[in-house]
Design a protein around this nucleic acid. Structure first.
Lengths: 112, 112
DNA sequence: AAATTATATAACAAATGAATTATATAACGA
DNA sequence: TCGTTATATAATTCATTTGTTATATAATTT
């Protein structure tokens, strides 16, 4: 999955995560997205390009504006990948439960 | 959340994701983790340092070995963050449903 | 004790990334 | 049509990342 590279590294940048958080509230144009940041417009345009390339956002053309919104594609992919880790961690956790249960049992047998 | 930076950028590298996938099968030493890669041991050691710094793995000391295993911390944090996007996407999806429902209704009214 | 194994760290080169300024283009409003 | 608005692209700079080799250190084996 070469797209996981793009998706994760797109999310690794705090400006881009802030943009995604803003888009979670709904569509926004490039200028609207740029406004909260102490950063030039070209910089924001490139962040959007990265997010789009990663499948995290989609853009419409509306006259001179390019409203952006969240896209499901990349999130789904990331989620599927993370599932592997979640399952593995849950398994470890169960194993830890077993260990603890066993320790408790031994304590009881030892009567204290 | 400054750790999200570290967590996402740690996951952005395919070698590191492969290491995580291997660790999903259980603990492994540095050498065991390095073996499948066409890469020197120091390179792998640094990948592990990145993963540890991001809270994605933990390491024990066992004689000269340093077995690694998955850690829950970073995954939990990532998951919480992704939840925001999931919720937003689900909302958009519902809205889309509404739009489609409306279109269907109009079609019916127009009798075709 | 000496050789070997497991791992870490430092120094360095090449590649990548993020921001800036300058500039281009297309749509819009007067 | 002209000036303005919304956005994109190119050139450049600086910082970070990733891999390499060389070397250090501690544990293990012989």
């Amino acid at each position: 999955m070469p797209n996981l590279d793009a998706a994760f590294s797109a999310m690794a940048d705090p400006t881009r995560r802030a943009i995604l958080a803003r888009l979670a509230l709904g569509e926004a144009t490039v200028m609207e997205l740029a406004e909260p940041f102490d950063m030039t417009q070209p910089a924001v345009s490139r962040h959007l390009k990265v997010l789009e390339g990663a499948g995290l956002i989609l853009r419409r053309v509306e006259g001179a504006k390019r409203p952006c919104r969240l896209a499901p594609a990349a999130i789904t992919e990331i989620d599927q990948w993370l599932d592997m880790l979640r399952v593995a961690l849950a398994r470890n956790y169960d194993r830890l439960d077993d260990v603890l249960a066993e320790v408790t049992l031994k304590r009881r047998k030892a009567k204290r």
